[in-house]
């Protein structure tokens, strides 16, 4: 696996310039541009796909064509809103929480590879970094819920925390299965290791477990108890409005992009295409992220919300045992081939 690293470990930006600071600025600009554009595209897709799955049209007015500018218009509206902080809220924590929820997903995008050179950073511990970052976000939710001084916010935040503890384990176990097969933890290395076979084939149950745990991690339907609007208003985000609320929304859609990207890298061969279809590597990665995001939206349109106890029971009694068994399966596969 060492030669794999040597072949694919250097970002294209480092080949452009050897100046560290210039490279840093370029990478930051690229990652931020990606983070500000792609989640909006996913959000627009959610508007349209959800609408059509309910026999509606969705946004049609903003922008000239099929409401493409709807989320930009929403953003403009959010910026114009008054920056309210509840009187009883802990101001500092309350104001910091949206950033804490959003930044981890930007950090995940830093290590997401779009080709063997198109990425900002190829960490040797890539997948560990990603797993760690994806759980930081919930601290932002917990901060939001606690500092809002609102009972519904607190319940939502505690649900989010309990959900993270329950679903982080199957998520990490599923990723561990992939790492066992590939023998590397760098994101580029994992993709390169799937050149002969995507890991979704030997590890299909782990792929399903990873997707389910990702949904829970992102608080997406059918695991959206932390924000269950019909039970607890809007969970930890109840007291938020304006730009801070927009940050939470951006974190949600950024999270969909990030976790779809991780799932694509771990199980679907990342930027590697199917044989016989000549498309550039970044396009393949974009197709995979788009398809997985579509699947996440599709689930939202289809399934109702589970109950809080069902969620916990499902994680501890179903997902974790199955993922443990399949890790053994992955080990057997590794020994056999």
């Amino acid at each position: 696996m060492i030669d794999v690293f040597a072949a694919a470990g250097v970002s294209f930006i480092e080949e452009l310039t050897s100046n560290f600071w210039l490279a840093l600025v370029l990478k930051t600009v690229l990652v931020m541009a990606f983070f500000l554009v792609v989640p909006l595209a996913i959000g627009y897709m959610e508007h349209k796909v959800l609408a059509h799955m309910q026999a509606r049209l969705g946004p049609m007015e903003a922008g000239a064509f099929h409401g493409w500018a709807q989320l930009i218009a929403d953003g403009v509206k959010f910026i114009q809103k008054e920056n309210l902080v509840p009187a009883a809220a802990d101001r500092t924590v309350y104001s910091l929480a949206p950033a804490v929820a959003m930044v981890p997903y930007i950090a995940i995008l830093v290590v997401l590879p779009f080709s063997d050179t198109l990425f900002a950073l190829n960490l040797d511990v890539g997948i560990f970094f990603v797993m760690a970052m994806s759980s930081v976000s919930v601290i932002g939710v917990l901060m939001a819920g606690w500092s809002s001084a609102n009972k519904f916010s607190l319940i939502g935040a505690l649900r989010a925390a309990a959900q993270l503890i329950a679903y982080e384990l199957p998520l990490v176990l599923a990723a561990a299965g992939v790492v066992m097969l590939s023998g590397v933890t760098s994101m580029v290395g994992i993709v390169e290791a799937q050149e002969s076979m995507w890991y979704v084939i030997p590890l299909f149950p782990l792929f399903l477990i990873f997707m389910v745990a990702s949904l829970a991690e992102l608080s997406r339907t059918p695991f959206d108890m932390p924000i269950a609007d019909s039970e607890i208003i809007y969970g930890a985000y109840t007291e938020y409005g304006g730009l801070k609320f927009a940050f939470f929304l951006l974190a949600e859609y950024g999270g969909i992009v990030a976790l779809s990207g991780i799932a694509a890298v771990l199980f679907l061969g990342g930027y590697q295409g199917l044989p016989g279809i000549p498309l550039p590597d970044p396009i393949w990665m974009a197709i995979k992220i788009g398809a997985l995001s579509f699947f996440v939206i599709w689930l939202r349109a289809t399934y109702p919300r589970l109950r809080e106890d069902q969620l916990q029971r499902f994680a501890w009694l179903t997902l974790i045992p199955i993922s443990l068994v399949w890790i053994l399966g992955a080990a057997a596969f590794k020994v056999a081939f």
Partner: peptide, 21 residues
């Protein structure tokens, strides 16, 4: 049942929307 639900939403998505603009 889970798969059936997915087919229902997918079929609805592929049908034209009933909305009148």
């Amino acid at each position: 049942g889970l798969l059936k639900g997915l087919t229902v939403t997918l079929k609805t998505m592929l049908r034209p929307a009933v909305t009148v603009q």
